[in-house]
Amino acid sequence: MLLGQSILFAVLQASLFLGYGMSEIERRFLTCADPSLQCDYGVIMVYGVKFSTIEKLSSNESPKACSDTEAFNGVSNRCDGNGKCEVATSGSVCDLCNSAHLSDIFLDVTYGCLESKKVTTCEGAGVVHLECGNGVVFLQKALYGRTDSQTCSQGRPQSQLTNTKCSQEGTLALWSQRCDGKQMCEVNMRVNQISDPCYGTYKYLDVTYICLPAQTSITCEGSTSSLDCGKGVMKVFHANYGRRDGSTCSAGRHELSNQNCLQPKTLDIVKQWCEGKSQCTVGLDPVFGDPCYGTYKYLEVSYTCLGGTPTV
């Protein structure tokens, strides 16, 4: 992925003022001796990777070919959303530490640290919102239950606070499906109260998320859309084919009642079409199957352009 470092730096620096909670953009050279990235706070977001090698003069073997796109995808998959990551692990990114082939190999990585936001809602409270302005929500953690005796404790008897090992399975998956990729997401405690993970304990919902500097493309069922990053390339954060609200692609339609229609394989398909490319076409409905028969669906894709300005 051939990115102009000065252009990339300018684009990302501009995002500091859009409310994404991003640290200064950093550039590191990863080698076998030092193959890790780390954020002192927040989580890693990789924006560019270049691959370089110096072959051993005494070796007749050629190093494993690695394009900048391959290197970017490998580092991004390992590091994005984590506080720390090791690039040179089993199945390393383009044989970073294969000493049989190389005397030196490094990855030139440009990345930033995104600050996490946390929202806590006490049981019985009203609706709260996760908001990201011009960016999109991406959940990191979600807990429904109780893990300490202080949170949401005011006015509650001690007997409702003693169980601090209470958590409902699937809470992160539930809210990720509902919120990831949206600029604003409504969090309603009633959604979590389908079952009770610890009867008699006063519970709360803890949600930790980051705001990604991304835009969202919507393609109604039966249509296609062209995504264009000009001279830049795409990084896809989230994609779903289905329906998550009652207003999107709703004009003249009545088949809107199912607003929890999800197709888990959408992201992998859209990444194959678009990740690391300057242009792509999305919205080929048959590829996704029909995750909710009888519901009018749409494809939503949250992405950003690295190294250029989008022309969508």
Rank of each mutant, 00 (worst) to 15 (best):
C66N: 01
S52C: 08
G181R: 01
Q154F: 10
K50V: 04
K165E: 13
E61D: 13
S58W: 09
A71V: 02
L102C: 00
S67Q: 10
G74R: 04
L57T: 14
Q183S: 15
V128R: 13
Q150T: 13
N60Q: 12
A100H: 13
E123Y: 08
G145N: 04
F106G: 04
V119H: 05
K117C: 09
L130M: 05
H129T: 15
G91I: 07
N163C: 03
E186T: 14
G135S: 04
Q183D: 10
Y111M: 08
N73F: 05
G124M: 08
G91A: 06
S103K: 13
K56M: 00
K117T: 14
K141W: 04
K50S: 15
E169A: 11
A65R: 12
M184I: 11
G83H: 12
S58T: 11
C132S: 09
A65V: 13
V127G: 02
K117N: 15
S116A: 14
S76Q: 11
A100S: 15
S149Y: 10
G124C: 02
I105L: 12
C85G: 04
K117G: 10
G112P: 08
Q160M: 10
G133F: 11
D80S: 11
P63W: 03
Q177K: 09
G83S: 13
C132E: 01
K141H: 14
F138N: 13
C66I: 04
L174A: 05
T164H: 02
T171W: 02
L107H: 02
C185F: 06
A173R: 08
L57M: 11
N77D: 15
E169F: 09
D68L: 06
T69S: 11
G170L: 07
I54H: 09
G145Y: 03
L172I: 05
C79R: 07
C94E: 01
L130Y: 08
G81C: 08
T53V: 15
V93Q: 02
L130E: 05
S62F: 14
R178N: 00
F138G: 06
F72M: 11
Y144N: 06
T53P: 06
K64Y: 12
A173Q: 10
N82D: 12
A71S: 05
N134W: 06
A125N: 11
E55R: 12
G112S: 15
C113N: 08
V93H: 01
L130G: 01
R78Y: 00
Q150W: 03
S76W: 00
E169I: 08
C85Y: 07
Q160N: 12
S92W: 02
Q168N: 05
S116C: 09
V109R: 03
K117F: 14
G155Q: 03
E123M: 00
D80P: 00
S159T: 15
S62I: 10
G145F: 00
S62Y: 14
C152H: 07
V93M: 05
G112R: 10
C85P: 10
L114Q: 11
S59P: 05
H129C: 11
K117M: 12
K165R: 11
C152R: 03
L139H: 07
K84C: 09
G135P: 02
T53E: 13
W175P: 01
